[in-house]
Simulated assay, not measured.
Amino acid sequence: MPHAAGSGGPSRSASAIVADTVRGYHVLRIDGYSLTKGTPTGEYIKSHPFTVGGHRCYIKYYPNGNKPEVKDYISFFLYHDGAPTKEVKAQFQFHFVSEVPKKPLTLEDVNIFDGQSSWGYTKLIQRTELEKSEHLKDDSFAVRCDIVVVNDFRAVEEEAEVVTPVLVDVPPSDLHQHLGDLLLTEKGCRCGV
């Protein structure tokens, strides 16, 4: 088949759509845990504000759950400080500092701040379970909130992968030489049997 003038073969190009993300975390240590147990159900103690990906956030710690049906649990929630000017997409995860996260953060389950919502766990751990665990030491424990903020998606150019056949030089066989040497030395030979 004739080629058009100037064509030297197939055109190759590649691109990828990538998430422009910012990762960060905030560690909240609760010193004097036993003193916080007197906080009524539904009431919280707020962390110091922190910033991830240009968004100011804070954590609410509910020592006796954030609602009556979870009053025997400790609840933690991540809040956006003030109404965001646009929709904020992010992924988060709370875990005790003394443990490995249950799963790495991915962008599979992206949450959206709509200005009113919060993200968190109503049942991070039952209080009696915490009190028997290794997480509570000297009336203190710490949780870490890992956060990935998705700023945008963008297309980037990638170098096209050129598939070239892998050529391996195979030396000529010298099996005949080895067989001849065996016959001459009579090694491994059952001669005269």
Rank of each mutant, 00 (worst) to 15 (best):
Arg154Thr: 00
Ala160Thr: 04
Tyr121Lys: 06
Gln126His: 09
Ile125Ser: 03
Asp139Arg: 13
Ile125Ala: 02
Lys132Ile: 08
Ile147Gly: 06
Arg127Tyr: 07
Ala142Met: 10
Ser133Pro: 11
Val150Asn: 00
Cys145Glu: 03
Asn151Gly: 09
Arg154His: 00
Glu134Tyr: 13
Asn151Tyr: 02
Val162Lys: 05
Arg127Asn: 12
Cys145Thr: 03
Leu124Ile: 04
Leu130Asn: 08
His135Met: 15
Ile147Thr: 11
Val163Ile: 14
Ile125Asp: 03
Lys123Gln: 13
Tyr121Leu: 14
Val162Asp: 07
Val148Ala: 02
Val156Asn: 00
Arg154Lys: 01
Val143Arg: 06
Arg127Glu: 12
Glu161Gln: 13
Thr164Glu: 11
Ala160Phe: 00
Asp152Ser: 08
Glu134Leu: 13
Arg154Asn: 00
Lys137Asn: 15
Lys123Phe: 05
Val149Arg: 05
Val143Ser: 01
Val143Trp: 07
Val163Pro: 04
Val156Thr: 03
His135Asp: 15
Val163Thr: 14
Thr164Gly: 11
Val162Ile: 09
Glu131Thr: 09
Leu124Thr: 08
Val148Arg: 01
Leu136Asn: 12
Glu157Asp: 00
Leu124Gly: 10
Leu136Phe: 05
Arg154Trp: 02
Thr122Lys: 06
Leu130Gln: 04
Glu157Ala: 02
Val148Ile: 00
Val156Tyr: 03
Phe141Glu: 15
Arg127Leu: 10
Val150Pro: 01
Thr128Val: 10
Val149Lys: 05
Lys123His: 06
Val162Gln: 08
Glu131Ile: 06
Cys145Phe: 10
Arg144Trp: 07
Ala155Gln: 09
Glu131Ser: 07
Glu161Arg: 11
Asp152Asn: 05
Leu136Arg: 12
Asp138Thr: 13
Ala160Asn: 01
Phe153Ala: 10
Thr122Arg: 08
Val163Gly: 09
Ala155Val: 10
Glu157Phe: 02
